[in-house]
Each structure stands twice: as C-alpha cells, then as structure tokens.
C-alpha cells in the first residue's frame, strides 16, 4: 500500500490558512492579468505596521524574505566585513559566500549552540554587516536579547540585520528598535506562522540607514499573495491559535523523542534539531514516506532537523523513526 508522504522538512505550518484567506487569494487569481495595485501594496504595508506595533518605520515588501536577505547582502556587503553565525539559514549562508568579499562566521557549538556575544563585539573592529537569524535555523535557539542588540548597535560602523522568520513562535522581536536605531533592520516572513508558504510574502522593518537603499528594491507581490496576506493580517487570532497548537505539539514531540533516548535540543521555533546515531536517517525516513531536513552540510554527522507537524503526522514520524532506526 502506498503511504502518504509527510512533509517535515521545510518548516511549514501543517494547517492551511483560514477559509477567508483562501477566498481572498481566489479573488486575486481572478485578476491574474494585472500587477498588484500600488494602493493595495500600501494597504498591506499599513496592516503590517499595525501588526508589528511599530509607528512609521519603512516597511519593505518582498516575494519571500530570502530575497530581502539577498538584497541586503548585495547592497551592503561591499567595503564591509560580513559577520554571520554558523550554522544559519542556508540560503543566507550561500548568498554571503557568493557575494561578500570579507567574511567571518561565529561557530555555534553543540551542545548549547550559544552565541558568544563577546566574540561578536571583538569582531566589530571596522565597517561590518552582521546578519543573525533569531531564533537560529537549524538549531532552534534564540541567540539575541535586547542588551545584546543594543551593544551591537553601539558600534556605529555596524549594520545589523536580524532574521525573525520564526518570531511568532519565539515571541522575541526587536522590530520596535528599528525606528530609533538607523543601523537595524528586522526581516520577517508570512510563510511560516501565517500558513502562507505558498504565497511567499516577506517584509523588512528597516532602519533609516537601510531604508533609503532598500527603497530601490521594489518588488511587486503576486496579486493572489497580496490579497491572501491582507486577509490573514485582518485575523491574526487564527494564526495565533495555530502557533499555540504547534508550540504545544513541539513540547509533546520533544518529550516523546527524549524518552526514546534521542538527543533533542530546546527550540523556540516550529522545528526540532535532533542528534542521532542512526546513519542516513534522512534517507531511511524518506524511504518510508517521511521527509525531514538534512543539515549535514552545516553540522557534524548525525544532526537532523524535523518540522513539528500535526499530532497525527508527528506520531507517524515517531513510529517510522522506530521502524528505521
């Protein structure tokens, strides 16, 4: 019998968007011959400003937050040392490798994967562009706190970009600081918590030092994505309820795996990082219809990243892990 494939490899939310969001996207589809209306893009910006609780900073829209991160690296890496953490969101790491001339990464070491802020401060010895995903992907750890961010921003030569793709799960944000700190930009996405991975709506809350340069980055959103995003922002409670379910489920899955003797690391996201002695776990699980993420390009052998799915998906994952281990 064919088994249904379970997708626990891309950190998607397993729940579809609200019906009204799907209907809004459908309305967008009926206008596929049109570019998004600039006024409606302004409308989305307004909703995002309200959602983020910021007053009037520049909100830059993008079809996917990874494109914004790429734009930041393209625009600001020249003449600056680009400082990142390792491991980190892989597309960012790749962009930095390709386009930045001078690069420094701070290795997050198991078992704690902590960021040593002192090392980061030492590295800020000239013009720098610091990019940190907070919480970090793939470790799931929150790396920064407010005093840490303030300390980085005291270095006037440093630009700081914080990727908050998993903000809704961690509850930790520095978006409100972008107004008073021109060197700070916070980048977020509606792909994850808002169940809109297929719509690809990313945005930045950009401090002044970025704002003028990023304003040339003018990306139209696909019309259905724009409509879906606006509708989703009008009912954030739907998203918040999903986030609560996933966080509860994450803790349940953590507990089960821990009891099975799997090394599981604490997470502030919708995924868990595991360390197992099972060789080829990713391939073995793929053979039995469970997709999880191979992070062996950034971490020592044995580490695997697993997205938190529905309770049923997670139970199946555990059962199939037992089969193949």
């Amino acid at each position: 019998m064919l088994r249904e494939t379970i997708r626990l490899h891309m950190n998607e939310v397993p729940y579809p968007p609200a019906q009204s969001v799907i209907e809004a996207a459908r309305r967008g589809l009926s206008n596929l011959n049109r570019y998004a209306d600039p006024e409606e893009l302004e409308g989305l910006r307004g909703l995002l400003i309200d959602y983020c609780g910021v007053s009037k900073p520049r909100v830059v829209l993008s079809p996917g937050s990874d494109l914004l991160l790429r734009e930041v690296v393209h625009t600001f890496s020249q003449g600056r040392k680009v400082i990142t953490v390792s491991p980190s969101f892989f597309p960012t790491a790749q962009t930095v490798e390709k386009f930045a001339v001078e690069r420094l990464s701070l290795r997050l070491s198991p078992p704690t994967f902590d960021l040593n802020l002192e090392l980061l401060m030492d590295a800020l010895d000239g013009p720098s562009l610091v990019i940190i995903d907070n919480p970090n992907n793939p470790t799931g750890r929150t790396l920064l706190d407010r005093p840490g961010v303030e300390a980085i921003l005291e270095h006037r030569n440093a630009l700081l970009v914080i990727d908050e793709a998993y903000y809704e799960f961690s509850g930790v944000t520095f978006a409100d600081m972008a107004e008073d700190h021109p060197q700070l930009t916070v980048i977020r996405t509606m792909d994850k918590a808002f169940s809109l991975a297929g719509a690809r709506v990313g945005y930045a809350i950009a401090g002044e030092a970025f704002g003028s340069a990023l304003s040339s980055f003018y990306a139209f959103l696909p019309y259905p994505s724009l409509c879906a995003a606006m509708e989703a922002l009008r009912q954030p409670d739907y998203m918040r309820a999903n986030v609560r379910r996933i966080v509860e489920e994450r803790e349940r899955l953590w507990q089960i795996l821990d009891e099975l003797g799997v090394r599981v690391y604490p997470s502030n996201t919708n995924f868990l990082l595991l360390k197992t002695e099972v060789p080829d776990l990713v391939s073995r699980l793929r053979d039995v219809g469970v997709l999880v993420s191979d992070v062996s390009n950034q971490l020592p052998p044995g580490f695997v990243r697993v997205t938190v799915g529905t309770p049923k998906e997670n139970n199946t994952f555990v059962a199939r892990y037992m089969e193949v281990r």
Binding site: H9, M10, G64, D66, F90, P91, Q94, E97, K98, V282, S283, R286, L291, S293, D294, S296, N297
Partner: peptide, 15 residues
C-alpha cells in the same frame, strides 16, 4: 560526494 539532501526553496548550488 558531498551531496546532501537539500530539498530547499532555493536551488542548492554546488559548493
């Protein structure tokens, strides 16, 4: 053979 299973959104460029 440093191929790893990268099903990511962006194409995995060969390092």
């Amino acid at each position: 053979a440093r191929r790893f299973l990268q099903p990511g959104k962006t194409a995995s460029t060969v390092s």
